[in-house]
Simulated scan of single mutants.
Amino acid sequence: MSSCTALKALPDFSAFQFTSEGAAGPATREVRFHQKTADVYNLDIGDIPEKAQPVQDRGDFNCLMTTLILIIELYTEKYPTRIVRLKGDTSQKARLYRKALDKHVGTLSSFFEINLEKDRNFFRALRHQESVDNIAFLVKRKPGWSFIIHTLQTNRCSRSQLFDHPVSVEIQRSIEIGFEMIEHE
């Protein structure tokens, strides 16, 4: 049986924190969502404290990738019409996002549409064989039943639909849960 992923989150799910254990010891990570356009939100991951090394493999890479995908799952449950944009601001983050999507594409495709951001720079980069680190992925939850969060409880313990993995989220204020059918245009 897999262990439970323990997360801490702001009430609006704009930030998550978790600690992962690796060969180099524990690392506290933070994932933040920042609005880019009306319905697109950039995902950014970093180590805590910010003065620490940029996100890197500390022997916890598989855990890091899986937790990143779990956070996207939770975030899009709360905001099913939002699109999560994955574009690393460093080559390490860009590779992390690509590897996480590559590793879990089979599982993700059941629940999410994954597209490349349509950007002339991407096609120019391919023509000139520039780094593929400039690729941005857009992840959007497919229409269907979605888990909606309102106000009532402070901890959420559930299972990931993607990985059948237990997840515990500590939220800094009360929440209430419910289900709602979401239809995308």
Results as ranks from 00 to 15, higher is better:
H128M: 02
E180W: 12
L86T: 01
D47M: 09
T151K: 12
L64R: 01
Q35M: 13
Y79V: 01
A52P: 01
A100H: 04
H184Q: 08
P11F: 06
V40K: 09
Q17V: 08
C157H: 14
A24N: 14
D119S: 07
I148E: 10
Q56L: 12
C157A: 14
P80G: 02
F33L: 12
E50W: 11
E185T: 08
H128E: 02
I83K: 03
I135S: 01
V31R: 02
F61I: 11
R159I: 12
Q161L: 15
R124Y: 11
Q172P: 03
A125R: 05
F123V: 07
D47T: 12
R173K: 15
S146M: 08
R141P: 01
S14P: 03
V84M: 02
L68W: 09
T66A: 11
R32I: 11
T107N: 07
H128I: 00
Q56S: 14
E170T: 11
D89R: 10
D39Y: 12
N155T: 13
K87P: 04
F61D: 08
G178N: 10
R159C: 09
L10G: 05
V31P: 03
A9W: 01
H165C: 07
T107W: 04
K51Y: 13
Q56F: 13
D119Y: 03
K87L: 12
P49L: 10
S2T: 15
I148K: 07
V132L: 15
A38H: 13
E130M: 07
T107F: 08
